[in-house]
């Protein structure tokens, strides 16, 4: 090993800082948007052309809900792992092939960004 430590540290440092700029900015934006995400997630969840969750689930103050699927309550207790909740909305048939729930993510009924917001909202229920 003839390369000086200085060089190595320098390059790695540069690399890390370059890489973390986008990471940092997204996470900062995220923190600021957390409240918004919940509100936007609710709109998306109620929107008939997007999540349309009310079609099958009862949700807090949502008007004329369906009763095909369980009411969305105590979601943190039912899904301690947020990633599992996301996976359920992404494609419920992966865990249960008989599930009638549409694979919202897999079939792009909603975009990934929209799905994240819906998860944020549903997790507050």
């Amino acid at each position: 090993m003839t390369i000086s430590k200085k060089h190595l540290v320098g390059t790695t440092g540069l690399l890390i800082s370059v890489l973390s700029i986008p990471l940092l900015t997204t996470s900062m934006a995220f923190a600021a948007d957390a409240g918004n995400a919940v509100a936007e997630g609710k709109d998306l969840a109620f929107d008939r052309k997007k999540g349309n969750c009310l079609s099958c689930h009862m949700i807090e103050d949502g008007a004329s809900p369906g009763n095909i699927a369980p009411p969305l309550i105590a979601m943190k207790a039912r899904f301690p792992d947020k990633a599992k909740l996301r996976a359920q909305i992404w494609d419920a048939t992966a865990a249960n092939p008989d599930s009638p729930m549409p694979p919202f993510g897999k079939h792009q009924v909603i975009s990934d960004a929209e799905l994240d917001k819906i998860v944020e909202y549903v997790w507050t229920l």
Binding site: I3, H7, L8, T11, L15
Partner: peptide
């Protein structure tokens, strides 16, 4: 000798950045 190693790191850096890109 030292030059090649330095080049190696550069290449590695490019691969990394390029890959992420």
């Amino acid at each position: 000798m030292r030059k090649t190693k330095y080049l190696g790191i550069l290449v590695l850096a490019f691969i990394l950045v390029g890959g992420i890109g």
